[in-house]
Design a protein around this nucleic acid. Structure first.
Lengths: 212, 212, 212, 212
DNA sequence: CATGAATGAGAATTCATTCAT
DNA sequence: AATGAATGAATTCTCATTCAT
């Protein structure tokens, strides 16, 4: 009995975890660069491997497919970002300030990592298979932050309780991401982080309880 | 020496304009269906042509490339939608109502045309070359509607004048489109048009002048 | 019983002769220009027809195929040249001078008709089907001139009788055509007609009876 | 922005030089056979690969394009022939004999390698891009042999010094090649090598200093 | 006579992926 | 652990040619 496809895949997944983490990162960083610059379809495995200074075949020791590499980029970077956010979050106790921080952090992260922004928002955001991947879970977790802060505000009685919390998250992420996409594709505005206060303020108006 | 490529392109552009509009539409509709269902990359010219009931070669009598077909979809549908919006707009005199209508129209258009939504938001929105195409101009024009209404509100003194009008447009479109993308990919919420009033209200809070 | 392919071809050949000679020439001249500039394979029927100011379909009223057009170019131009040569020949009685004239005429014809030279020597000379075509007969007839002059010289006792007359023709044509090809492709020498006397003289040395 | 095409080409050139010479030869020989029999345009990559017993894709690991294969045939065979000629040349000290040898060697090479003759004289001789290729340099070098012998004869005072040495080369090559082409296309004469002495003698008459 | 419209047939090339070493 | 070598599989696009009008 020869090993089935299923078997092979499982073998690979197991392998993947054993293999040197260092080289995985090397590949992810190479891939980020090329995907970010040329887009997913226009990128070849060879180019990624050239950047990562490994052979084409070696890439397949660490990833199962080109798409696996793509998805792993999101997993890797978002994972790292989540860690950072959690830490900062730990020191902020005011809900409004937490929201402000989240918006600021997102804007700055995108602005400081244009290649990643390009991959995440131009390629992954429209990928049907991504939402079914494991990597997506990490991204979803990251988006949870907004849901949580909103809920916190509601609980504290400073945010309106009549809004769907997922809708609120959609508004904020949609706002930010649309801005980033425009920045990436059209090149305008030149910088996006300066909009952090305006965006925060617009968001707050939408969700805060009006005081009279 | 040989101006071939230049020549050929010009020939094609000329051809495209002469050729029967009816068949162009037929192709666009076939393409919309397949692109919308399987995505751009996963779609072959042959599939489009099968849907459109023409031969592969015929497609190239009407379009210059697969991507030309893709972009033309946006041009065609957005163009049609703009016309409709303008007409409706004509009968609405209240600025707030105009904004409400725009949001509602967008949501309903996306909801009623999931295939188009898929092409526009999953494929085109992340396409670098699209923003440089002629088709993009039409899309940009359509987005202008939000800019215009906002400006109108500012002029009338009912909307805050301290916001960048393009940022306002970004918020609204980002909000809506993010919602649509989620709806397309995750399947939740099941319907998006019911959110029209909530969205409208959230948007208004952000941009209206507060009354005390 | 539907008409067989054979039938159709015969119909076309018949048609071809009826059809306006003027338009045939128009097409041949258009084709010469494009074939001559870009080469046979790189030329499309459309380009020829654009030059000839007719539609693609019309070309097929006058010629059976792209290759038919190509071969017809040779037939047309060589035919015309033969006529001219015969006329001039009529007034030259000295064999040596007749040979000189033939060499000169060939060189000048090629030099003055670079497009035709290109078609004849770069495209047709290497075409296996051409030698089996009717058009080739005309070209062969034109080459006969050299055979005839040589024979004349032999008969008059001024040329060596120990040479194969076809070999002599090969030498002269090979010499001239090789020079023309080099001129076409490499651009050197800049002009070829000035070589007429040297070539003539070299040829004569090879074939004339030595006087001692 | 994206140096793709440039990059890819450089990658390929590098690749080509590294890759096993043995397989390159295998492909060249397969290609020679098919090109020689059916002509360049009528030959498909698949046919070449079938002969060479490799997959279509593999061919592109060794050559950049169909045309690259074509040109490489000339480079390979002419290169080999040059080596042989140089060796023989080494043992011949008499200039006349050297010329005789060159003519004989050319005739025999063409006669013994009809497939190569076909490719070289029917396809390559009329190819505009070939003269700009690197492969052409090798062919040019091979033609130099005639220039050199002639020059040697001039220096020794046995050949006329009033002729352009390139014209002499043109005559000899034109003569031989025209003969070969006729042999290939028309099938006459049946053999060409027997003409070696006649050709040699005709050539010598043209270029030798007459003794009185 | 002329042609607009349609297409069959094809063919070169690309690239992710595999596997023996 | 790493990779050189090989390829299967796929797909866009081109173009000569036809034919109904």
């Amino acid at each position: 009995m020869s090993p089935t496809k299923q078997d092979k895949l499982q073998l690979k997944i197991a392998k993947k975890q054993e293999k040197s983490y260092q080289k995985q990162v090397q590949i992810i960083e190479g891939a980020l660069q090329v995907f970010g610059e040329k887009g997913y379809e226009a990128t070849t495995i060879s180019e990624i491997c050239k950047k990562a200074k490994i052979s084409d075949a070696t890439l397949y020791e660490y990833f199962n497919s080109k798409e696996d590499v793509l998805f792993s980029i999101a997993e890797y970077y978002t994972g790292a970002e989540i860690g950072k956010l959690k830490e900062i979050n730990h020191y902020i106790h005011n809900t409004r300030e937490r929201m402000r921080m989240l918006i600021q952090a997102h804007l700055e992260f995108y602005e400081n990592n244009p290649l990643y922004s390009s991959v995440a928002l131009l390629t992954l955001k429209g990928n049907r298979r991504f939402v079914q991947s494991d990597a997506y879970k990490v991204v979803k977790e990251s988006a949870r932050a907004f849901v949580d802060v909103y809920q916190e505000g509601v609980d504290k009685g400073i945010f309106r309780s009549d809004l769907d919390k997922y809708l609120v998250r959609n508004m904020i992420l949609g706002f930010i991401e649309h801005l980033v996409i425009q920045w990436l594709l059209v090149g305008r505005p030149e910088k996006i982080s300066p909009y952090r206060d305006t965006i925060f303020e617009m968001v707050m108006r939408s969700i805060e309880i009006e005081e009279n």
